[in-house]
Design a protein around this nucleic acid. Structure first.
Lengths: 142, 142
DNA sequence: ATGTATGCAAAACATTTGCACCTGG
DNA sequence: CCAGGTGCAAATGTTTTGCATACAT
C-alpha cells in the first residue's frame, strides 16, 4: 500500500504524502499536474498547501515513486511509476495522452547514444499528433 | 538572405527581426534561449528589448522559420529550421546538444501513431544521458 | 498617413523558498 | 521530545501583455 511505499522510499509517512500517493494510485488520471493534484485534494475535502504538493511530488520523483514529464506545455505533469518504461503520444488539441512501448525504438536509442559518445541515462520520446476521438476539438481545425 | 526569409514569412522586415534572424543564421550556437539571443544582441551593441525577442521568436516559430524545444529545463530553446527534421540527445550535466536522424525510429513512430488512432503531426524525441566530453562536469559525478 | 512593431514596466504563470508552527516516531 | 514536515506568503525565473511611442510601406 501507499503507506509502505512511502516508508520504503525513506520518507516519513505523513498525511499529505499519504493523500497524494493514494490519489495518484486511485485516480483515473494517470498524468496530472501539481495544480491538478492540489485541486483534486481540495475538492475531496482535504486540506493541503500547493507548496507541499510540489515538495512531495519532487520527493516522490527523487525516490523514484513518480516520473515527471514536461511535454510541450508550460508545466510539469507527474505520473505514478509503475516500473515499466514507456513513451507517450499526445493529441495537440485535446491533450489526450496514450502510452506505448516499442522495442525497436528502444534498441535504436541505445545505438545512437553509443555512436554519439553518450552513456544513456533516461530518455523521453513524445509524439505529437491529432487524435481521432469524437470528443476532440480537433474537428474544429482543418 | 534573412531579408527575404522574413518577407516570405509574411512579416514586415524590421530591424529587430533582421538582427535576430541574422544572429540565428550566423551564430555558432544552434540551440539558444530567448535570454541568450537577448544577451548576444546586447553584447553585439544592438538595442533590443527582451519582450521583442520573445515576440519575434514566437512569430518566427509560427511562420516555421524556427523550432521551439522545451528540453527538461525550465525554459525554451529555439533553433533555426533548416528544413530537415532531426531529434536530439542531450547531456544532463553540461547541456551539450547533439542532433541525429534515424530512419528506423521515424518509421516506428508513424506506425505507432497509426495504431493509436492519431494523425502524426510533429514529434520530438529527446534522449538524456551523460556525455564523455573531457570538459563535461560529468566527471564530478559517479 | 496609418497600421504595425517596439520598448518598457507591470502582469501572469509555474515553481521554489523562508520561516513560524505543527507532527510523526 | 525534536528532527523533519507543513502552510502561508513572499520570492523566483520565464514568458506575456498593456500602452505610449516609433517605424515600415
Amino acid at each position: 500500500m501507499a503507506d509502505q511505499d512511502i516508508r520504503k522510499a525513506g520518507l516519513k509517512v505523513t498525511v499529505p504524502r499519504l493523500k497524494i500517493l493514494e490519489l495518484l494510485e486511485k485516480s483515473g488520471e494517470r498524468h496530472v499536474s501539481a495544480e491538478d493534484v492540489y485541486r483534486m485534494l481540495l475538492e475531496a475535502g482535504d486540506e493541503i498547501g500547493l507548496a507541499t504538493v510540489y515538495r512531495v511530488l519532487t520527493q516522490f520523483e527523487t525516490a523514484g515513486l513518480v516520473e515527471r514529464h514536461h511535454f510541450e506545455d508550460g508545466y510539469s505533469v507527474f505520473e505514478l511509476n509503475r516500473g515499466q518504461h514507456h513513451d507517450h503520444i499526445i493529441c495537440i488539441f485535446c491533450g489526450r495522452v496514450e502510452e506505448f512501448i516499442d522495442e525497436t525504438i528502444e534498441r535504436q536509442q541505445s545505438k545512437i547514444a553509443q555512436e554519439k559518445g553518450f552513456e544513456i541515462g533516461d530518455h523521453s520520446l513524445t509524439i505529437y499528433g491529432r487524435c481521432k476521438d469524437p470528443d476532440c476539438p480537433n474537428r474544429d481545425k482543418t
